[in-house]
Design a protein around this nucleic acid. Structure first.
Lengths: 182, 182
DNA sequence: ACACAACTGTTGAATAATAAACAGTTGTAT
DNA sequence: ATACAACTGTTTATTATTCAACAGTTGTGT
């Protein structure tokens, strides 16, 4: 992509997020965003359809960042690791205030779905055709586990992170081991 | 000036100064500057003739900043004030490492002349036609004082700021008062 | 002496951002 | 009710930056 587009999108999104920290979405005007980003107002419309599209792109970029930060741990080993869980908790922790802002505007569901899907990808997949003793690792169990993990993530986040990322990861990992899934 | 030109010049100069901190002028290539500034190499040539022109513009911008920071104290009262002296010392202190780099490349003389001239502007001017008792405030005395002040500034800077801006300002101001110039 | 890599400064075509306008909308105060 | 100010989203011509290529230079090692 053209360097100018990259830069424009970046500074506009940064300015917008900065404003989101200061006031709620509906109180933010395109004029303000343009002023804060120090770009022409038209430039915003060249890159984003409107304020809500801009918000979507910010969320997407934010989620991409989470995935990217965890992808070494997740993708290299082609399965869920303790490390990737820890990184996810740490990501949620370090972006807490910003994510709260996003969830106010857009709800938790988008993020939850993304994280759930990513966990599904990370869990080991086994054919349904395998023996019945492996039923625990079937599609159903994958969904079961992904939901469980996502649920813990959500609970931890929504309750303002009642314990450290390290502690919650330890506990969750122990549960997974006890269920003989990993 | 067009917003894009402003931005380009700013980020190119900042990147260049950043590189000047890391290595000497002759070891810095236009490629590196472009890379650090995250602009196309051609953009540098659209804004600056070459590396040396870029250096000149950086110095000019830096000096403009000094003047601007002191101009309230200097220009509003149309004469030299203790405050403007203090601000000058503080400016030299806070930009010490960067100014050292500049002086390595370009020498002290440019800066000295600018500061000298600015002090001349700040000193009160009296007609040569006034009574002989006012000879102390003639053109000669103006040059005398400006050189003295500039000399102290230079000594203080070249000797790596042997005392605080506040202390050197106090001492210099006392000298000026004892000479009944202010 | 030669090759080779990195650099300089320039070009032209494509693309993006800017400035300045515009009509239409919304919210607010009088 | 109405005027007013601020906003939205779009359009136009203009200007700046980008990208890719170019020939020519400089410095380095073999």
């Amino acid at each position: 992509m053209d360097k100018r587009k990259q830069k424009s999108r970046k500074i506009i999104m940064e300015a917008f997020i900065e404003l989101l920290r200061e006031k709620e979405l509906e109180k933010i005007s395109m004029n303000e965003i343009a002023e804060k980003a120090n770009v022409n107002r038209g430039t915003i419309y060249l890159n984003f359809a409107d304020k809500y599209d801009l918000l979507d792109k910010c969320i997407e970029a934010n989620f991409s960042q989470l995935i990217e930060e965890c992808q070494n741990a997740i993708n290299d080993k082609k399965s869920l690791t303790k490390e990737s869980l820890l990184m996810t908790f740490r990501y949620l922790e370090s972006h807490f205030d910003f994510l709260c802002i996003l969830f106010q505007s857009v709800g938790l569901s988008v993020f939850k779905k993304c994280i759930h899907d990513e966990i599904v990808k990370g869990l080991p997949h086994y054919d349904q055709s395998e023996s019945l003793t492996n039923v625990i690792r079937s599609e159903v169990s994958t969904q079961f586990l992904a939901s469980a993990i996502t649920g813990v993530l959500e609970w931890w986040f929504v309750n303002s992170m009642p314990c450290s990322p390290d502690k919650i990861t330890d506990e969750l990992w122990l549960l997974l081991q006890n269920n003989r899934v990993i």
